[in-house]
């Protein structure tokens, strides 16, 4: 029997893993999104309103939240087709702030005061979402589709010349990534049973990207490992009290210097195989 504290951390890791996978999928086509917290917010608010106001069962509400976030991802994905690198990052960052401001001004969901009334999910329910999603992404990574996504990432022009529909691939990645973030949002809302716009700010988006960068972006286990590290490291560093966040930052820098490709990659996994 684990303590409720450990259960709480495991739940956080489960939710953060799905959120990190949402960045991972978009990154597979070489797109960096700094606005995934906005998709998470859409999923969180949609699922919460459905369960609280309309009595929709939680799993169905989370699924609807994922669809709403996915559609929003598709809409955002269109203008994003013309952008790459830092320009795309800036555009998605702007979208994230816009969405946060929208919920800040939306009285129907409590505005800045936040929204509550949801029923709390169990740790098992959170991992019942996280594990299959992780397996799905791992399976997708072994498919030709993922190869096509990576081809777009490596050289979009060459991929197009090979006959790949790069527009559909990029939009698809954005849509699936946004839907994953929406699921993470729905779970977040029904774990904390309170949400407010401040919970989906730029820091949240950066945490998602950081989990991928830290854990490794070449295989789905990387973002999950990164999410776990980001959740556990500040707790493990509590013994240094006021300096723990500074130490956490220093630790991140050291890890990224030693493992610029992220902690987990295929080579490491091969080396670990007996």
């Amino acid at each position: 029997m684990i303590s409720s504290y450990v259960a709480g951390l495991l739940a956080e890791i489960g939710i953060a893993s799905i959120a990190a996978l949402s960045v991972h999928v978009i990154l597979a086509v070489g797109q960096l999104s700094l606005g995934n917290a906005a998709f998470m917010a859409c999923g969180a608010y949609t699922a919460s309103v459905l369960t609280v106001e309309h009595g929709v069962p939680v799993p169905l509400a989370i699924a609807v939240g994922a669809v709403v976030s996915g559609v929003l991802g598709l809409v955002v994905g269109f203008p994003a087709l013309r952008l790459r690198g830092i320009y795309l990052a800036m555009a998605t960052l702007g979208f994230g702030e816009m969405t946060r401001s929208f919920f800040l001004s939306l009285d129907a969901t409590g505005g800045a005061a936040g929204y509550s009334g949801m029923q709390r999910l169990s740790l098992g329910a959170i991992w019942a979402w996280a594990l299959p999603l992780l397996v799905l992404v791992l399976l997708a990574e072994r498919s030709r589709l993922w190869l096509a996504l990576n081809a777009v990432r490596d050289d979009e022009t060459a991929a197009r010349l090979l006959g790949l529909n790069t527009v559909a691939l990029k939009l698809g990645a954005f849509t699936v990534g946004a839907a994953l973030a929406g699921i993470a949002g729905g779970l977040f809302a029904h774990w904390h049973i309170f949400i407010e716009p401040g919970a989906f700010n730029l820091d949240r988006s950066i945490e998602m990207v950081l989990a991928v960068v830290l854990g490794g972006s070449t295989i789905a286990l990387g973002p999950v490992f990164g999410a776990a590290a980001l959740a556990l490291a500040p707790e493990a560093l509590r013994f240094i009290a006021d300096w723990r966040l500074a130490a956490f930052g220093a630790l991140l820098i050291v890890i990224l210097l030693l493992r610029p490709q992220g902690i987990i990659d295929r080579r490491l996994l091969r080396a670990l195989k007996p």
Binding site: S3, Y5, G8, F194, A199
Partner: peptide, 18 residues
């Protein structure tokens, strides 16, 4: 220390309780 972060505060309540 919860760093004024709600999720950490919630987990700390669990830690202190259990």
């Amino acid at each position: 220390d919860d760093a004024a972060r709600p999720a950490q505060a919630a987990n700390l309540v669990r830690k202190l309780a259990d």
